[in-house]
Write a protein that binds this DNA or RNA. Sequence first.
DNA 1: CCCTGGTGTGCAATCGTTTACGATGGTTCT
DNA 2: AGAACCATCGTAAACGATTGCACACCAGGG
Lengths: 349, 349
Amino acid sequence: MATTLKDVAALAGVSVATASRAFQRPELVGATSREKVLAAAADLGYSPNRSARALITGRSGVYGVIVPDLENPFFPAVLKGAQARAHQLGSQLLITDAGEAPEGELPLVRTLAAQVDGIVLCSSRMTEDSLREAADITPLSLVNRVSPVLPGVFADPVPGIPSAVRHLHRMGHRRVGYVGGPSVSRSDAVRRTVIERICTEAGMEWTDIGSFPPTVDGGRSGAEAVLLTDVTAVLVYNDFMALALMERLRSFGVDVPEEISVVGWDDIEFSSLVTPGLSTVRVPRYDMGVTAIDLLHDGGRRRNGESHLECLGSSGDEDAQGRSPRHARIGLPSQFVPRGSTAKVTARE
Amino acid sequence: MATTLKDVAALAGVSVATASRAFQRPELVGATSREKVLAAAADLGYSPNRSARALITGRSGVYGVIVPDLENPFFPAVLKGAQARAHQLGSQLLITDAGEAPEGELPLVRTLAAQVDGIVLCSSRMTEDSLREAADITPLSLVNRVSPVLPGVFADPVPGIPSAVRHLHRMGHRRVGYVGGPSVSRSDAVRRTVIERICTEAGMEWTDIGSFPPTVDGGRSGAEAVLLTDVTAVLVYNDFMALALMERLRSFGVDVPEEISVVGWDDIEFSSLVTPGLSTVRVPRYDMGVTAIDLLHDGGRRRNGESHLECLGSSGDEDAQGRSPRHARIGLPSQFVPRGSTAKVTARE
DNA sequence: CCCTGGTGTGCAATCGTTTACGATGGTTCT
DNA sequence: AGAACCATCGTAAACGATTGCACACCAGGG
């Protein structure tokens, strides 16, 4: 049916070995035969059979990506970045929705591992032990999750949080709250501490409003909790929650930003669409996808200097043999995006 | 590295042929050897090498899906449905973002075709000719696009539009407009005619407000165009545009729904989050994904009765040989979801 | 006793590539 | 001139699974 390398070789008048080398190791074949092969290939519209290649090289040219929920607007941009990079590298992306099931992730990794060259785990909720086990099966790269033993990329709260907090300070806010996400979330914990530090540095009062599910409902509950405090501004775990929170505040007759300013996190597309626009901390989702594939591709080796990436740290843990594997953990800078949901403090208490 | 069929066969004390048949054609091997093979496989944690299998069977166990833009909230649910079905069938999904480039879709199909068993094209903007060419290369199934020569699944405007229009009528609206999407869009044309028909049937005045890009900007432009007319309610091509349109109307001091009612299309998640909630025509995205894979899987053959699907029509075109290939074109019912953006007519004019 | 038929199994070819190895011819060095 | 070397290319063996074919074995009928 499809044209094979043998057809190309025949048309070019060379052996299949030479034809193969014309693609794989061009420097090993003579200029004339190389050109004949290339011409024949173009002529026949040849494209190599990836299964055959995978069979012998042991690499499929496909990377797997596991996301917890495709409908969460955080991930598509990550996927786009990952796909762009994968295509540059001649690979494809096998995307899988883990479907809200933390305990299903490890089996999923097992299934996928057999047919991919490595897996990008997004916001994985797997235990550290499961992660280790998964890493034994196949190369892994983490997005939005840090592990001492695995390479990964995450959003650095800096400079987003400092600049958000300073912005609130300039607007006259002195009491700010944080509506957190799931308490198991590492990034939530990090944000919490950074917010606290920056607030105290700026001489502002900080209130932990609690942990909530990272959903619309969580945002609504958050709104109710906010009303029990005297804060004039809140930072919220993600835009989803922040939008629901604004909505809920309004339904209680509390105006945003007149009475309470709200800052979200992620800068999903809708944040700029609502009224008032949601001020938010933008995270470089696309670049995170790109970087995740990079990490997979060079298997944790030294990164090429080409990029805008900023490597914030590496694991120094020593393994049983006393070697010191250094796994890249890359933090990409976040950025505060001011919009209508933050304003000068006026009414509230 | 990984355990192969040979290992399993050796442990079970049979030949690889028997081991293979124990999986593929169990009825051909004796009960005792079958059990020994299965036990050995379980013991070794054997999983077949899909590349090797693909090489000989010519089927990779992977379906491709091409979407125009992953960040468009319409698609994730489709992908989820497609994935669920694919997994049921033992296949994986290779998802690709075509990246806003209609002219890039055909090359993309060519690239993908080599490594998948078929491709689901979502909202393809390819020309009919390109579609035909693509269909020559690999099995195809269309989502949100109908073609006379290809199987596909689309959202049936019924009963969504009739019930939306009746709802507006009950609210006292007599002049409604339609803010359309790209004029090349088939579904746009269909909606247009259905809206017109239902409106006239209900004795309402209908205004075509024009064609706009299916983006936030398109929605904004649509808002301005709406203000040049005297309609009291508009139906909008999709929720994205509808939300931006509401936003824009409001920035012009026009209240929704006090002065103008707005109905969107798709029921993306945010439509229920904004204030007022966006009334919208919900389309069964998840089921469309499921069905698209089904169409690919049974290669346009008769559908099994198991489902809730409603087959609206088949192509009767005859090909050169005079045969009459019947390609399933399946319309899934849409549904009107009333929310706050539609209300009794009051102020306008 | 031979032949037919069915059942269960193994041998070996095959899919399309990659790549180790060896063969060939030509060039350069001593 | 002979050796050593290099560039170039072909032969053939993999990779791991599937499957057509043939073979062995056993039952039963003539």
